[in-house]
Nucleic acid binder design. Structure first.
Lengths: 336, 336
DNA sequence: CTGAAAGCGCTAACAC
DNA sequence: GTGTTAGCGCTTTCAG
């Protein structure tokens, strides 16, 4: 930086000021300094800067699984509001690995980011590792903080499950199945609770839980075989805990006599996975609004960064919404 | 850190050593120090550390579009080899925005990462911004550096296009169409070249280019309408420049008389998009091996970080591979 | 605006 | 192993 100062024929402090307090520097000298910066290819050392100021203008987000478009949406939302506040967002991927998640958190902590957003692996696996961060502001995304120690934003999973089941019931379906598991995934358990609540509110409607070992397409295909074995007419409505599950089941069932989708069996998925609308039969789904969750989470983090540790740690709940498509509406649905 | 030293009853230098040169410290004192660290919740300040050493153990990757699973694969591959070398990988998303891309590069440059990987927006839009980085080692992914100033890893797009067309020709198809555009996307242009080369090598086979305005599903649907208008039998094989394009076209064409896929029209896509195997008709595709590209790119970067600026800037070419599925093989194909 | 200087938290080198 | 110290590149303050 002193090179720049010499090259521009100004004082070192003036160089610093043109970068940080441009209004304290006259138009003319500012341009001289910037010319020198460009000429020398000077790049300010952010490590030294944040050492000196004790602050940083970047925030980090730790994502459970980048392969899941839901998390990418969260990151995109967080990035948008971070930029609005003049901050940068950097991402670390835990890749469904608890050890990597811890490393990523430490990484951000040690590099003294202004704050961190954490979209952790599913709750059941995390509970217990209560103390996540002490000094750095931390906001949880898609995870309900137990202790109230952290601010956060979560989706109302139960509401989503309720909406899904209620949609099918509204279409006249009475013999429902809920596809999903394992139940130690709290999101799945809550979605099931919501579906049960909808059924309980509608006399004459039944719901059976078909537990799966996971939420991916192969699990859906496996469950599809089970449903097939139960015989046509056993169910006339299917709530799947994920879009992938729904697609897998549809791949097996649709076309088989007595299992036409949606005539014999109306299907609703969950997540609004990006390809759900492009699969063999576009899947009705529950959208969790990942991008909005990211925006809100980043906003909570900004509050905390500015407000200090006294800021109240609120948890914002985002309501998911139904997006009906062909798998439940049939020909009544049309693309766009 | 001096707090830790006092708390453990050792010298400041010893604390530094237990973290950086554990072998220079006796077992006993090392444990004392670590206990103090845990007790005080001490977190080493990486900004100060990298200021003092002039080095960093994290590398950054700037990705053109996180929504595209190809880039996520690249990041995953890079992360794997970075960890093998004891380094951390942080990600910044350009979100198909040139301005964000520049900001992200500067961000990493200023934070003095050990090196950066850049998977940039398509070449045509980037050419000209020749000087990307001076001081920080930089390796390009999925982009052919013109000047030889940067190391890089790219896919052999022409080979991919050749393979796709050759696959159809091998199946006895003779009236091919190539779907894709705009041609100022160099990847598309090169894939088309490859397809043309395959056709030229096989007398009696023809290929017509149907230009699209983009590579997404709606563009594919639009092109599908065009093909439909041309009448049944005009084409018997279709090479699409992306899986999304292929899916869109199939959505329109399959089922229409004379357009059964693959009987009347065999289709090959490109990218091995994660959902390509789960669409209405699983799409044959060309896989670019994103994860391997990421691994190789990170390895090149490691070489450069260790070897200094004298390291030769090589460009590694990864050959894409055909993954045949139902859209070209028909019933001969079985899942897995 | 200049010029000088203290200090951010750490590493690395020194004599003991 | 200890205790001390210079210095990484920047910000910030102060008198002029």
């Amino acid at each position: 930086m002193s090179d720049v100062a010499r090259h521009a024929g100004v004082a070192l402090g003036t160089v610093s000021n043109t970068m940080n307090n441009p209004d304290k520097v006259s138009e003319a000298t500012r341009r001289k300094v910037q010319a020198a910066i460009a000429e020398l290819g000077f790049i300010r050392n952010d490590a030294a800067r944040s050492l000196a100021t004790g602050t940083s203008s970047t925030i980090g987000i730790v994502l459970a699984d980048l392969s899941n478009s839901f998390f990418v949406d969260i990151a995109r939302g967080a990035d948008a509001t971070a930029r609005q506040h003049g901050m940068n967002l950097i991402i670390a991927n835990s890749d469904v690995d608890l050890a990597k998640q811890s490393m990523n958190i430490s990484l951000f902590e040690e590099s003294r980011v202004a704050g961190v957003l954490l979209a952790p692996l599913d709750t059941a696996y995390v509970r217990g590792s209560a103390t996540l961060l002490r000094s750095t502001p931390l906001v949880l995304v898609n995870f309900a903080a137990e202790s109230g120690h952290y601010a956060g934003v979560v989706a109302d999973e139960e509401h989503g499950g309720y909406e899904a089941a209620q949609h099918l019931i509204g279409l006249g379906r009475t013999r429902l199945a809920f596809l999903g598991g394992p139940l130690l995934l709290t999101a799945v358990a809550q979605r099931l609770e919501g579906a049960r609540a909808a059924v309980a509110a509608n006399p004459g409607v039944t719901l059976e839980h078909i537990e799966t070992r996971g939420l991916n397409i192969p699990h859906g295909r496996h469950a599809g075989q089970d449903i097939l074995a139960r015989g046509a007419g056993t169910f006339d409505g299917l709530v799947a805990a994920s879009d992938l599950l729904a697609v897998g089941a549809i791949q097996i069932l649709d076309g088989k006599p007595g299992f036409d989708v949606p005539t014999d069996l109306a299907v609703v998925g969950y997540d609004n996975n990006h390809f759900a609308s492009e699969s063999a039969i576009p899947v009705s789904t529950i959208s969790q609004h990942g991008e909005e969750m990211g925006r809100v989470a980043a906003q909570l983090l900004m509050n905390e960064i500015q407000g200090g540790p006294t800021t109240i740690k609120q948890t914002v709940v985002i309501k998911p919404d139904l997006i009906p498509r062909r798998s439940s509406l049939g020909d009544a649905w049309r693309r766009d």
